[in-house]
Design a protein around this nucleic acid. Structure first.
Lengths: 205, 205
DNA sequence: TGTACATCAGTGAACGCGCGTTCACTGATGTAC
DNA sequence: TGTACATCAGTGAACGCGCGTTCACTGATGTAC
């Protein structure tokens, strides 16, 4: 690519981006530290100036993924505007959009097998991400008739689980991928039915 | 372990079982063909008598997993007894129970990244598994008021997605694992709310 | 029951390879004066 | 503006290792007669 001198300039971030591409191509377990080094035209030993090893590279990709993810969800939620319900549905769509648009980050975050607890920074930003989801659920939950109001954390978990399941099964050529439905439609319909079950949508629309 | 002669006796299945253990320990990408061979006290070259390589080993674990999975779902569904609804809920519970009881198979089936199309046997048994799910959905769908009856394949997909999401996120110490809810309760509640949204459960129970 | 022979499953040695990790090093950069 | 020096980022050679895959082989098993 571009010629460079002895010093790279921004090797750390360049490595992160190479890792990202490698994950997109071959999955989080499908590449080696040496490949990442080669991708940015650097000796494997140079990687150790910035990361303790392959795991930490992936963890950094995941961290940056959570950063984007949180911002995106926050933006979609938009402080509950125009309504708690509409904002909530927007976060559902945003989840799927994130998985589609940032598949490498998504895999590093949710499919790499690296524990969020392996890194304090990672744990913190991951917690912030779930906080956004739960805040959306909490706001919405005010509209639910109290006698059938589940804990907000619970229905945040439901929506998260369904979204994640749709991504894993009906995206990227996986087991159910030959489904006749687009993942987006599937998720939208599923969330709609679920919210109706909570009494948040009219029964017979 | 047990001493054996020059011939192993049932090397093929022994290798499959070793692979299963290795997947449970280190994930579908976390072991080598040589490790599998070593686990059954055999030369790596011997593996090639039975499998074309590591991929095919995992595919066979997945195939056997689908076999068990289908049987389990079929048993749980029990031809729609005692009622379409109860039978449907039983399959939901059976899904999670399968994931818990056969984690190695589950990973080979859903997390290994080997395409179901890589092997005709595998593709066939996987199709049979989804057929069971869709049959359960179809039977249940007869009870749904026609004006809001989604295609059975769609709501089979919804239930599958939510179940899978719960397994991935709230089982085995993954990202959302510090959830305050047991996966079983979470899934049961989620399916309940969903079915209420379909008009299959009373609104105010 | 015995023996000759075909079949088959696993051996073990060999190959070339890329891996992770370490180390003393060196070239580039920045800063103090 | 110039120079001396400290700091730092990346080099390249080296290590021991386990990998996948091949090959001619051999020991065990089964069967025909």
């Amino acid at each position: 690519m571009s010629k460079r001198g002895y010093h790279h300039g921004n090797l750390r971030q360049a490595l992160v981006e190479a890792t990202l591409s490698l994950i997109e191509e071959k999955g989080p377990q499908g590449f080696t530290l040496s490949e990442a080094a080669k991708a940015v035209d650097v000796t494997p030993a140079a990687v150790y100036r910035h990361f303790s090893g392959r795991e930490e590279l992936i963890a950094e990709v995941a961290r940056q993924g959570y950063e984007i993810f949180t911002a995106l969800m926050d933006f979609a939620y938009d402080n509950g505007k125009p309504s708690a319900l509409a904002a909530f549905e927007a976060t559902g769509r945003a989840y799927l959009a994130f998985a589609r648009k940032y598949p490498g980050h998504y895999q590093a975050m949710f499919e790499s097998g690296i524990p969020i607890t392996s890194n304090p920074d990672l744990a913190m930003i991951a917690a912030r991400a779930t906080a956004v989801l739960e805040e959306a659920a909490r706001a919405l939950s005010a509209n639910i008739p109290p006698e059938k109001r589940p804990p907000p954390a619970m229905f945040a978990a439901h929506i998260w689980a369904m979204s994640h399941g749709v991504v894993e099964l009906f995206t990227r050529g996986n087991p159910g991928a030959r489904s006749p439905f687009a993942a987006e439609d599937l998720l939208e319909a599923g969330i709609g039915i679920y919210l109706r079950g909570l009494g948040l949508l009219p029964q017979d629309r």
